[in-house]
Design a protein around this nucleic acid. Structure first.
Lengths: 335, 335
DNA sequence: TTGAAAGCGCTAACAA
DNA sequence: TTGTTAGCGCTTTCAA
């Protein structure tokens, strides 16, 4: 049991100085081959792993990035988390994952933890609050990249999806197919995604000159149960000829409600959703859906952040970049 | 922009020594109230956050734990990840999440990264390989807790689910309901979970004295597509009167296959699965399913690990603990 | 109740 | 090509 195996011991065993061991560890080129071999052998024999804590202190870099998302259990954010981690590893960074649960207080407390741990940068799907602290972090040299949502007035790199346009396209398609009473289950209106997808629904109606009838829009919370409940309410509306749901979890609930009512898709009712979960293409007919480039969203954010970190362009030396990715409407048979 | 705000600056601003600032930071009781107030004010005004890297180096503790799971995208492992993170936060630990992708090489490389970063402990859903390195880590003082799977010959805390017994219970119930040709879609046979769930299927048949007919057992890979494909193969077997699928992803595919064939559950075919995803209780009739205590699996593992860390009982001073949690068979209407 | 100072393990400037 | 050494920011003895 080597309770304290450090660079000094390794140096001692190899009969060299700690500086030389350090050079070998960091692939510094001007080390005599024989010396290098000797050191590497000791490292191998002892299973020595450099102490990254000490190295990080000295280098003032941790080669780690923090990720704050609302919840890894969500099908959306788990993909973001995976994408970020993959990108991080590709660049030899490690990730610290935090589930902020859409709570501004948790968000703040995680931001502080990440700051304490001197992560080199942060990827955040923000609640929209804590602008001052975020801006303090940026000004003290920790770059931040926002994902999927924004913080009003915060200057930093951001990666978004064109929610509004994609949503508009779905509804326009449905209207042009002849549907006139399209029920919509919206998401929370305190979030960019919730707001924009609803906006797209209205845009399409306006563009096509079709009025939105009373009671066709229901507010949900992006969770599965609310999808089922709001769908049941809507299905009681005799006029309804189609249903468009603004995320996949609510769509799961809504789909079940339609099936339990014995309605056929698309004969009795048209159906479409924002998001494209596995089951959308597995059922018959397939459900027409908006596929967001979720993985790309995460990996783009990570690449942006890593570039800012390694360029040494820091948090503030370079203009903020805003990238909007295109979601794609996939027509299957449901509408 | 405070490029280098450290304890020294804070001490200077507050007119005290760094030692005193440190005492305040760590809630050391014997500091004069007035001094404490002065220091806290400077901290508040400057937004000072202690440098955890330096603190960790000095204390030789990082208050962080590493988590290696196969993939956060899986509905199973994302819950584990969330449970571990929740438990960690509760104990003021942070987590470093790694997706090992069931690859022994990635597993090893992540173990080394975590070692480098001097995490205080590791939670691992192991591939089964790398026993020597794992055992080296344990002997050098880094406790490891295994989750859901085991590594042959490795002495460490382990948290498992009684896969075999739970699986046996499902099949026994089906047999006693009168089903005689129960198709089974098994998981990979290189994993404890895959092996044990299949074993339970055989156990039940043996106990009930019912022979397993040729071709009723198909090998899948725990993924959605293989569930659909294997189900289609099985449904061609004219004798089949029920289908039992060994995890939820494959069950999703299998369920779709059944529906697309126009079969009714349970009139035309009985259906049950291991795992209990949201949709199992949303469809009609509900699908009878084995609910694993997934969250508990993760939180138990984390609690075990944290206890070993903070007890100072270390990695080897205390006998390894093995905990087997009970999965529960939930009868709905599908079988 | 407070301060001075050593030292955690490493890197990097400088000297040789 | 290698060694000596200062110092990263903190905690913690020891002394006052």
């Amino acid at each position: 049991m080597h309770r304290k195996l450090n660079i000094e011991k390794v140096a001692e065993y190899a009969g060299v100085s700690t500086a030389t061991v350090s050079r070998v560890l960091n692939n510094y080129p001007f080390v005599k081959d024989e010396t290098r071999r000797k050191v590497l052998q000791v490292i191998r024999e002892t299973n020595y792993q450099v102490n990254a804590v000490a190295r990080n202190l000295r280098r003032k870099k941790t080669h780690s990035i923090g990720v704050i998302i609302s919840n890894v259990l969500s099908s959306f954010y788990s993909v973001i988390a995976k994408a970020v981690e993959d990108a991080a590893i590709r660049n030899k960074f490690s990730t610290v994952l935090c589930n902020g649960g859409d709570s501004p207080e948790k968000e703040l407390s995680y931001l502080k933890v990440l700051h304490e741990n001197r992560v080199d940068g942060i990827i955040l799907s923000p609640t929209g609050k804590n602008r001052d602290y975020l801006s303090f972090l940026i000004s003290s040299g920790i770059p931040i990249t926002l994902v999927d949502r924004t913080v009003k007035g915060l200057q930093c790199d951001t990666v978004l999806v064109n929610n509004r346009e994609a949503s508009r396209e779905v509804v326009r398609y449905m209207l042009r197919q002849g549907y006139r009473n399209i029920g919509f289950i919206a998401g929370p209106q305190d979030r960019l995604t919730g707001i924009e997808r609803l906006q797209g629904y209205y845009d399409a109606h306006e563009n096509e000159g079709v009025p939105v009838h009373e009671g066709l829009v229901k507010m949900g919370d992006f969770l599965i149960e609310s999808g089922k409940a709001r769908a049941i309410e809507l299905l009681e509306n005799g006029r309804l000829d189609a249903l468009y749901v603004s995320n996949s979890d609510m769509a799961t609930g809504a789909y079940v409600a339609i099936k339990e009512k014995g309605l056929r898709i698309p004969e009795d009712i048209g159906f479409a959703m924002f998001d494209d979960p596995d089951w959308a293409s597995l059922v018959t007919p397939g459900v027409s859906a908006v596929r967001q480039p979720v993985y790309t969203l995460g990996s783009t954010a990570a690449d942006l952040l890593v570039k800012r970190i390694v360029d040494g362009s820091g948090a503030i030396d370079k203009e903020p970049v805003k990238i909007v990715l295109e979601a794609r409407f996939i027509k299957r048979g449901s509408v």
